[in-house]
Structure formats: C-alpha cells, structure tokens
Design a binder for these strands. Structure first.
Lengths: 113, 113
DNA sequence: GTAACATACAATCAAATGGTTGTACAACAG
DNA sequence: CTGTTGTACAACCATTTGATTGTATGTTAC
C-alpha cells in the first residue's frame, strides 16, 4: 500500500511550478500516454536536448515523472499518483469555499427562524 | 450563464505559477473564506505591504482572485470558478492516463482471444 | 577498437521573480 | 484643513529560471 504522505509547502511549490510551463505539461501528457526516452522526447520540441533534459529534471524533482535507466537511455514515465495528489490540493480549496457557503446558509436559516 | 471559455497556454501558466507560492495559496484560502482588503491581508504576513500587494496582483492576473474598490480599500475575493477550471486541467491528465489503461486492457483482451 | 548515440553536467546569459524602500495620491476622520 | 490610512507604482537588488554551448562519460553497433 502506498502511504499518503504529507506534502510540504516546498513539495506543493515544486508541483505547481513544474506545471506552470507548456512544454513541461506536454511532457507529462506524453509520458502518461507511453514511456519514452529523454532523447525521443527532445525530438518533439524546438529546443536543445539539454533544455528538454532540464524540463524533465524539474518534473522529476516535483515527482510528476520518474526516470529509469534502460541501456544508454533514460526512460521517462508520468506518475498519475502525483497528479491525483495535485488534484486533492485543489479539492482543498474547493472544500474551503463550500464550507463557507454552508456557514452562510446556516446563518440565513437562523435568521429566518 | 457563464461561458466556459478556452484557456490559453499562458492562462494555464499563470494559474499554476500563481499557485506555486505558499503565501499566494494562503491568500487564496483566506479570500475564499471571506472577502478581505489588501491591507488587512498584509497584516497576516511578515513582509511589506507592497510585497503582499504584488502577490495579490499575480493572483488577479491568474484570475484566481478579483479585486473591487470599496472606499479607499480594495476588497479581494477568491474565485471558486477559476479553482474549478484548474481542477479540470488536472482531470485532463487523469483522463489521458486512464485512456491509456483502457487501450492496454483492450490490447490484452484481444490477445486473449 | 571505433564511431555514433544518449546522457550528465558546468559555464554562461537574458529575463522573470520576490522582495525592499520611496514617492504620490485618493479617501476618510477629526 | 490636516493627519492618517489604503493603495498604486517606480526604482532597485538578489536569486531563480529557461535557454544556450561545450565537455566528459557511458552504451551500443559494427
């Protein structure tokens, strides 16, 4: 069983920071569809291999992708679990807002009585 | 009815970038709970008024909060709709991954036949 | 063994970020 | 009218980011 460990502020910063770039979001999409090497990924973008390598590193630091050696290549895979963690973070905001609405409803109800 | 307009890459960048900072996430939380002026917000943080003002501006550019003049104050409110849009973005990733699993299932099924 | 390929990593550079202080001005309180 | 409060905005500075090129090293193919 995968333990749902607490995310630090820095963890959350890294997750959202990593997602705040179109190239990196595209890399996440591609690596969720199928595993792919860094060099094959690099073919898809109009930038240097080193730049793509760096984007992958940012995603890896955010744990949104994992990198595994296979021969001379490094295979990159998107991590759907981490995406779900990010979803849960946004859910948190949603909950806050909803509980506010609930409180307002309660207040209005009390005034009606 | 609120039209669900398409988000550009830059829109998405701004949303995630804005969320990639603990102070800004806290501002979003506070302004979802209750509307509050910029100066009252600033009281909550160990940084200058101008710095908080800038954080609010970043959130406003991402449309995660709105700012409305009230007398000499500027009232800040979190926008739950924009949060939901962000949730939908992460849902998109989730879908990609799930459709991959579906394809793999289909493939395995075909091989079994 | 040699050449080609895939990666890692350092140095470098421009632009963006996150913070500061200072100045100006509008709105409210007395 | 005057002083205080709330905001806007500019200038400035250190750090981070996003990209480049160059060099080194490991892996595969022949």
């Amino acid at each position: 069983m995968v333990v749902q460990q607490e995310l630090t502020d820095d963890d959350v910063n890294r997750i959202f920071r990593a997602l705040a770039d179109a190239t990196r979001r595209d890399i996440v999409r591609r690596t969720l569809v199928a595993e792919i090497s860094v060099s094959h990924l690099a073919d898809a973008y109009a930038m240097s291999f080193a730049a793509v390598q760096r984007h992958v590193a940012v995603l890896e630091e955010a744990k949104l992708v994992t990198k595994e050696p296979r021969g001379r290549e490094r295979i990159v895979r998107g991590d759907p679990g981490r995406i779900r963690q990010a979803q849960r973070l946004l859910d948190g905001f949603e909950q806050i807002w909803r509980s506010r609405i609930d409180r307002l409803d309660t207040l209005l109800e009390e005034q009606a009585n």
